[in-house]
Structure formats: C-alpha cells, structure tokens
Design a protein around this nucleic acid. Structure first.
Lengths: 347, 347
DNA sequence: TTGAAAGCGCTAACAG
DNA sequence: CTGTTAGCGCTTTCAA
C-alpha cells in the first residue's frame, strides 16, 4: 500500500530509521538501538548502522520519539513581555540552565493580559511541553489555567510573582524587603515625606512592593499618607504623568521611591520638566538595575534584583520537578541589594 | 495487551480521542472529526462528542497530530542574545506575526558562537520546526548547517545579517546606508576627522556598517584613515577601552560614529573619564535607538533601525515560505532614520 | 545480539 | 453521516 501523507510543504522527507536499517541490512529495532545509543548492539553492527545513517543524512525525529517516550524535551516560558530587560534576562538564565540538559525553550508573551496568558498555557500544554515556567499576570484573574495544568500533572514553577491562592513552587525577588530597604534608606537620610510611584497593583510583585513601602514607613515611625502613593499604568508617558501629579503638589515629597523601570524614567522626565534638580530638590530610588542607570547624571540609586539568579533558580526548580521531585511547594525568595548612587545625594 | 509507555513523570495521561469516542459512543474517526472541526458530522453527534470531551477534560495532543500531519506549528528563532534589546524586539515582533496564525516560537541564543548556532539549528530541526529564523553569526564560519537546512527543504529566513555566500531570504537593516548617513551628517557639520568604533567585523552587519562609513567618507571627499577606525569586542568595558584608545591620541577625531550599543556607551564612558564635553569637545552618533539615549544629557543622536518592522517582515516572509512560496530568494532592506539629538551640537 | 510486532494519539482513505 | 483501518517514526517487549 502506498502512503498518503506528508506531501505537505515541500516534499521534505528525510531518511527514517527504516531507511537506515534497510541500508545497513538490519532490522529497524537494531538500527534504532544503534542510533539511539540504548540496548545492546555489537560494535560491528553499530558501525554499519552509523555509516548508513551518515550516508543518508539521517536526522532523528523528535516528534515521533516524543509520541512514544511521552517527553518532548521542551519547556514553556510565559513572560509578561520579552522586551522588558527583566524578562529577557530571566529567559537567558533559564535557557542557560535548561539547554545543557537537552531542553528547548518555547516562548510566549502574555502582554500582562490574563487571557493571552491562559491561551499561551493551553497552547503549550497541547504542544506537550515537559514543564512550564510562568510569570502570572493579574492576581485577581483566578489562575484557573494554572490550576488545571497542575491538576493534569504538568510540572509548573512560577517566576517573579506568586499566584496568591495557589500553593506552587515560586521563585521571586524579595519585593517587600527591597521596597522597605529603600524607604529605610530615605528615613536614615532624614526624610519624612517619602512618596512612592507604582504601577497598578494587579500583579503580586507590585502589591508586595507597596506592602514593603508601608512596612518601611512603619518601621521608621512615619505615617503612611495615601496621597503620597501614586499608581498608574506601566508606560513611560504614564510614569511621567504620575510623577508630575505627585511633584506638582504644594507640599510635595522630597524623596521618591519609583517601584519600576517606567516610573523611574517617568520621575526623571518629570523632574527635568519641573526644573527640579536631583539630588538637591529631590532624591530618588528606583527598582531594578538597568544599564542606563549609570549612564544618566547623577547615576540612579536602585534596589537591584538578582535577575540572573532568579532565572537560574527557577530553571533548577523546574528541572527538579521534571525529574520527579514531589516534595511540597517551595517559595524561594531572592534577596535584593540597595545600590546607592548619585540620586540620593550620597555620591 | 497492556501498554508499557508513559509512566514517565507523574502518570499524567490525559484523555485521548479514543476515550472521548467511547464516552460519546461513536468511533474514533467521528470523535476526531468533531474535535478537529473537519469533515462532516451531524450537529447532534458533534454536541455529544464535545460534551464528552469537556467531561473528560480532553486536550488535543499536538505531538501526535504533528506526527501525522507533518507540521508541528512551531517556528525556531536563533538570535545572538535575547538580552540585547534589538533581538528582544525582533522576537516580540516575530511572535506577534506568527502567533495569530497558530505558530509557537522556539527560542535559542547563539551567543554569537557559530558552534552553538549550529547546535541550535540542529536541535530545532530534530524538533521538526515548520520554519527557521536565524541571525547568523560569523560570516566566515561556512554556514554549512544553514545550507543543510535549506537542502532538506526547511523554510529559512535570515534576520539582520546576510550569509554572504548563501542566496537566502534575508531581512536586514540598511546598515551601509545608515552608516553613510551618519558620516554625511558629520561632514555637513564641517567635520573632517571622523572616527568610527565598531565591533569585530565578523558578522555581516558590522562589515556593512564599516563599508558604509568608508563610502560616506568617500562621498564627502574625505580620506579614510585606518587608524581612525577602532574595533573591539562588543562589551561595555571593551567599548570604553576602544574609545579611550582613539580619543587619547594627540590628533584625535572630534567626531565619532559608534556602530553599536556597547561602543556608544563606551564612548560616553570614555568621554566622561577623559573630561571631554559633548558636544563641545566631541560629537557623537550611535547606532540603534535604545530607551536610554534620551535619558542621558545631552541625548544621543542615533541612526535608528526599524527593528519592529524588521521582525514583522521576517515573520511575514517565513510564513509565506511555509505556505509554499517558492519564488527566488528576496533580500529585504529596511531603511534607517537619522535622529538628530544633542550629541551632535544641534539641539 | 538480533528481529518481529505492537502501540504512542491522531488523521484520512475508503467503504458502508 | 459514520465506522474500519492503516500508518506517521520511533521505542520496547518478547522470542529467537
């Protein structure tokens, strides 16, 4: 019987084990054993098979292998936005951990949209990834797709943000501690009015930074004033708008904690437009240490995250789960480091 | 006979078409038709099948589907380094084009190492991606793996850099034109000594920028002085070292064209250390427009690439190839734009 | 050490 | 409109 399949794209049918077996005059089983390097094959036979394979330009077919072995050797990574240097670094670090072990990374951007996150997770599951790494969006979105994945037995590790009602392996920055450290630093410098700029508190990490801010104030014996906390969407323009709103007020804070990249840039933009000199008229601490923080003048004091390590730890954890670790979920917290630079006045 | 397979990780065997078929009391073929939305099925039967599927939490298995259909609905993307904002943007743009068409992106970093690029391409081929997007490294490395892929009929489009001896679809920035435009701008400003900082001319894009630099000089009636072109590895530290080497010379150029991100930062660092004021003592044009270029003072004049469009075009081209387009290879050149800012003296 | 044969989950001829 | 069946490329039992 003639086959019907695969004239699909460009009649690209590479050699199969069967072809190799025929050419080496052995059975498929033997050829497969030699090729796959498992089972026992005599040296002579192996050599014959390998030569035949080379002649034919044989390339193993992972798809077929995956179907029988149940493992695709792929890992799905869902991030908010790969253009965000934070996630790019995470992706890099994960790849570095996982590739030497033979895994390939599938990438998806959620755009911080719960629906597209869900879609990505479902696609990945259909692709039968061996494990899943996700930076979950909006904490209020239910996370049903994550629960489903876990229920189906898919190894899953959360990065950067916890899913609050789900007990899952999570590797995240110590956002609370980092924010609190920033506030403490301001307090130690003698500041009493400390403002904060944050994105909308929909994802866990943003919430934690706000929590840390309040704890820091409390610890310093300062009062939390709701009007000193301004939140807005995470874009450069919104960052500036938020900063201006805060800094235009008559009794404006003289110290500002910007909880993310966009808010930090926004604060810089706003200070520039309002003619406020840093650090004389305003001191500033940002969150996360980007390249440009040392290019501007003065260089920016930041709460630095160990992004690389975060990615590495997440990758390790997932690999462990894939390998069969079925211990209780672990929440791994990665400490931050306050890097004091020019925007705090202490050059 | 009992099966032997899949007790692999955590006995995670989801429902199959067969299970659904049984529950709906129809044949697998009918169930598959209803599930896959192809062929003709009566409304009543379809409903029964769909209900059964929902009850069982059925998830289609792409691996099995791929084995028979010959299409995995995945696309492999090999970039130099996803942490480079340029590639992150490309990845983003590509994803945006291919995902709506149902494709998933596999990601690999080559680290600009020809060997790891080759490995990535081979892994992707084994995974049976439907198409391949690669930013090839070192032009001198032979590109045998690319030739092999093409020979095997794998749709392949090159991004950002051409493989000089290979006639392949290529989507790249007009690097020559961009570099020449920078030089022309300097010349129009009256500069006669124009230096250039470049990474090692191993990849096609670097070579093209150098070519453009020389053409720009020629067009302006200026002489090319080999000592005014300094090349070095693409890191911030090396960037600074190169810049210092050039700027420490007694008869140093007063205009500098930095052909990449690192060289631009390096030039800024070096100018700062040497006490050279920009634009008074030195004017500067960088390549590629990063966020931080407008955060520093003065903001940096750059040759901006339409990175997003580049990614989009590459994605489109690949999709066309996958769809069966077998026209001659196209070289698509994406124009640059010179964005004049403070570092050129014309604020 | 080797071979024959079953089967992974799904699709698509072909027949009814 | 629905069912039977072969087969995608590979791994693995089982027997020789």
């Amino acid at each position: 019987v003639r086959t019907f399949s695969n004239p699909h794209p460009a009649e690209r049918s590479s050699a199969t084990v069967k072809d190799v077996a025929a050419r080496a005059s052995v059975s498929v089983a033997t050829a497969a054993r030699a090729l796959g390097g498992y089972g026992r094959v005599s040296a002579a036979t192996r050599a014959r098979v390998l030569t035949a394979a080379a002649d034919l330009g044989y390339q193993p077919n992972h798809v077929a292998r995956a179907l029988v072995s149940g493992s695709t050797m792929t890992i799905g990574l869902v991030v908010g936005d790969i253009e965000n240097p934070f996630f790019a670094t995470v992706a890099r670090a994960v790849a570095k951990v996982v590739e030497p072990r033979g895994y390939t990374l599938l990438l998806a951007n959620s755009d911080e949209d719960p629906r597209s996150e869900r879609r990505a997770v479902e696609t990945f599951r259909a692709q039968r990834i061996d494990g899943l790494l996700v930076a979950p969006t909006a904490a209020d979105a239910g996370h049903g797709h994550l629960r489903d994945a876990v229920a189906a037995g898919v190894p899953l590790v959360l990065i950067d943000r916890a899913a609050e009602r789900l007990a899952l392996d999570t590797v995240a920055t110590d956002n609370r501690g980092g924010a609190a450290a920033a506030v403490s630093h301001f307090a130690a410098l003698g500041h009493e009015r400390i403002g904060m700029l944050s994105d909308l508190p929909r994802i866990a990490s943003s919430r934690d930074r706000i929590r840390g801010y309040r704890e820091g104030l409390l610890a310093a014996g300062l009062e939390f004033r709701p009007q000193d906390l301004v939140v807005g969407p995470a874009t450069r323009a919104d960052g500036r708008a938020c900063a201006e709103r805060l800094l235009r007020r008559p009794r404006r804070p003289r110290a500002l904690f910007a909880a993310n990249n966009f808010m930090t840039i926004g604060a810089l933009d706003a200070a520039h437009r309002l003619g406020l000199r840093i650090p004389d008229d305003l001191v500033l601490i940002g969150f996360d240490d980007f390249v440009w923080t040392t290019l501007v003048n003065p260089p920016v004091t930041v709460v630095a995250q160990a992004v690389d390590e975060l990615g590495r730890l997440a990758g390790d954890r997932l690999l462990a789960r894939i390998a069969g670790d079925d211990g209780p979920p672990r929440r791994i917290s990665v400490p931050t480091e306050l890097i004091v630079r020019g925007t705090c006045g202490t050059p």
